[in-house]
Write a protein that binds this DNA or RNA. Structure first.
Lengths: 166, 166
DNA sequence: GAAATAATATGATATATATCATATTTCGGA
DNA sequence: TCCGAAATATGATATATATCATATTATTTC
């Protein structure tokens, strides 16, 4: 309670919210990516991971993560098995998928490709004021997400050139 | 009401929310940028624009826009005058500011520069799995926002190489 | 084939964000 | 110098998003 009040005061002082989620991706997408990353590193057909453990490893609330994983599973981005010895895992085929697939399912294509100002009418032919300047960034972002496969990322983790999230 | 139900069903079907805000920037930043853009094109010291009119032009709810403008005004990103003949406007100095200033005030630096997975511990030295791949995009994004001045954008509008939002 | 396990499905709640409403201050003009 | 216009400040409400809780279904193991 006191914390909330403090936060509110500080927020006003700073003219912004504290500890708000970062830009670029939605919180949901971030959570999903974290989970997929963990699965890429730790799971396979013979070693499935339960939401419970995924939740601990990624610091994402269990039930919320479960919903995200269900969506991914429904769209065959991740694999799952019910019952004892069950859990989530990634098949080699899953690992070949680009990160884009994850974001696509969670946030949706429209969200990813939408004009930066959120203008429906904005297009190459009738660009908004920011369009031409932001286009390179957007294209780089999207092509990066499309190029990077889950597998690649897990290789980095194996050779320790990157680290798993807490 | 019916609409809400329809939306919910469709959302479930698609596995995602419909018409959700785009990525990259927060809705607030988008609104603020739209307003600033309009001001850059339409206002000067002798021709101030009231929130009411800004609201109409940008399709942003009046009271919400007011709050955003107040924050910008408090931080001298935009100028304002109270009373009759008052309103918001941009001075030449205001126009020299980069778009980054707007986003900085509305979303905050932390939000802009935060790790894409939202990991506090992520850094050059201890990068998360996405860090190295996303860095170019992030840097391009930030440098673009820092380079583009409000003035530049208004020039585009004048020579009609871009269009004002509805 | 019964019991336990874990994903799936669904609904309810909390929090953050966006939106609305109203009071206060400041300024210009009659 | 008083009235009205407009920004400012603040609080209240609604909506979207994130979080929690529970019931259902499928699968393994004994």
């Amino acid at each position: 309670m006191i914390y909330i009040i403090f936060r509110t005061i500080m927020s006003f002082y700073l003219g912004q919210l504290i500890c708000s989620p970062s830009l670029m991706l939605s919180t949901s997408s971030k959570y999903a990516l974290k989970a997929v990353l963990y699965l890429a590193d730790q799971s396979n057909e013979d070693h499935k991971v339960m939401v419970k453990d995924l939740s601990k490893a990624t610091q994402v609330p269990k039930a919320y993560l479960a919903k995200l994983l269900q969506a991914l599973s429904r769209h065959n981005i991740v694999s799952s098995a019910k019952g004892p010895k069950g859990g989530y895992f990634l098949t080699p085929e899953n690992k070949m998928l680009p990160l884009y697939s994850v974001v696509e399912i969670i946030d949706g294509v429209n969200k990813i490709e939408m004009c930066i100002l959120g203008l429906e009418q904005c297009s190459e032919k009738k660009p908004c004021a920011l369009h031409q300047y932001i286009s390179p960034t957007r294209e780089l972002f999207i092509s990066t997400l499309k190029k990077m496969t889950i597998h690649e990322l897990s290789l980095d983790l194996k050779k320790s050139s990157s680290f798993l999230p807490l």
